[in-house]
Amino acid sequence: MKINIIVAGVGGQGNVTAAYLLGVAALEAGFNVRVADVYGLAQRGGAVVSHVRIGRVYSPLIGKREADVVVGLEPMEALRNAAKFVKREGVVLTNTYPIYPIEASVGEFQYPEIGKLLKAMKKLAKTVVAINAQRLANEAGLPIAANIAMLGALAALEVLPFTAQHMRSVVEKYIPRFKEENLKAFNLGFRACGEVLSHRDR
């Protein structure tokens, strides 16, 4: 058994924390784990990518088009990494809330409509799930918890080799502050993803 997950976002979104929590959850469920974070100067608005590998794994890196899931904390990063990593049979799970790059602020780049980004993702992977994790985090009362809402959503996809309850308990155990808000964000993400999936199944 081997599961490859890419977590991608922008510096400051809690990418590394989300990947770390996934890693701890896998470790505590008894699996071998590799988590490799790739970031330049993250606090300065750069892109961040974490490779999370669970099971019979040795290499820290996921190869091209070998990810089972790409989790995008930001939609443009989701597409960028889906194009590089997601398997045809895989899943792209993306937040729909954009963080504009400087070129977009300056007006040199037109940030695409979310619909266009999703359409491109659908060409790459069999399953694409989009939720507004930022709205859910705001609803939970902790705007910086979009990463945790995305973990909740990931747990609802049923691709992880452990239960959503286990993932949730790791979030509870390892996040020292604002436990209640974080758990709420997790639950909202879980539910939102579940709803998207049930619509699709019908």
Binding site: V10, G40, L41, Q43, R44, G45, G46, A47, K64, R65, M76, L79, R80, A83, K87, R88, P101, I102, E103, A104, F109, P112, K116, L117, A120, K123, L124
Partner: peptide, 23 residues
């Protein structure tokens, strides 16, 4: 081989690299 990808052109139109700058 790898699975099918989307074209470079399409990707370039939809994404832009994030340049770093002073906070």
């Amino acid at each position: 081989g790898e699975g099918p990808s989307i074209g470079e052109l399409e990707l370039r139109e939809l994404t832009t690299p994030r340049v770093i700058s002073f906070c």
